[in-house]
Simulated assay, not measured.
Amino acid sequence: MLVRTQENASRRSGSSELNALAGHAVFCSEFKYHRGSEIFGEGEPLEYLYQVKSGAVRSYKLLADGRRQIMAFHLPGDIFGVENGAVRRFTAEATVETTVRLTIRQNVVDEELGLAAATNNILKLVTSNLQHAETHMLLLGRKTSIEKVAAFLIEMDVRLSAAGVLNLPMNRRDIADYLGLTLETVSRALSQLRDRDILAFIGHSHREIMVRDRAKLAMFDH
């Protein structure tokens, strides 16, 4: 299935990132998703490639015991939905109000076009995804809870920070399911970092975070 809660879909030329991936001009549609809306589900046909225009998307897999393991967060500019095989291995959902662009996968990977640039670009994207998966596995298996949370904040600081403030587009449950921790453990680790004056919370939701001491935060990520 394509989209459950889209609004104001419009046909338009592809973004520069999707054009660069394909190696030629592609056309894409633009859809809006409400927080928690599914973009695609595990087991669905692999028909489309996506790019986040605004908001954020989580990719996750439900484990046999019913727990949710978030594999990645896709942020503005990120291209996602690139997988091998005929069906989706993960589910993707909007974590906040989100706008995505999508294009038919065949527009990018059509072998008849014979574009070496597209093949190289897709291989680079797949390699980048594999590197992220490797880093994520190491984070899950080898770090203490405060080290995991610090590593997550450093990643988000690089990808999101504007004017020194992190505006996280995911809640603490999402962070916990990404790091393989409980909600309480994530909250406790964030409080410890605040108490050490490494970060400060802005507002009541605690999604806006000011990193006061990046050097000290980096000491936990080793």
Rank of each mutant, 00 (worst) to 15 (best):
D195G: 00
A150R: 11
L21A: 02
L102P: 04
K143Y: 15
Y178A: 01
T135A: 13
N107E: 13
S15Y: 11
T185R: 15
A215N: 01
R196M: 08
F27T: 08
V96H: 08
L2C: 01
S37E: 13
V26T: 13
L49N: 04
E17Q: 12
E7F: 05
L179G: 03
L2M: 07
A94T: 02
G14H: 10
L199M: 10
F40R: 03
R35Y: 11
T5N: 10
M219W: 01
E44G: 02
R212C: 10
A56S: 11
D110T: 10
L166G: 05
I104A: 12
C28R: 08
G114K: 13
R172V: 11
T135C: 00
L115G: 01
L115W: 04
A189T: 13
L130C: 14
E184L: 04
E7N: 00
S15E: 07
T119C: 09
H136K: 14
A118V: 06
G114N: 14
L123P: 10
A200Y: 04
L181G: 01
G114A: 10
G23L: 07
K143P: 00
G180M: 03
V165S: 00
T5P: 05
R4D: 01
A117D: 01
V109M: 07
I146L: 08
T103Y: 07
G203V: 01
R159L: 15
V149Q: 08
N84F: 10
L139G: 10
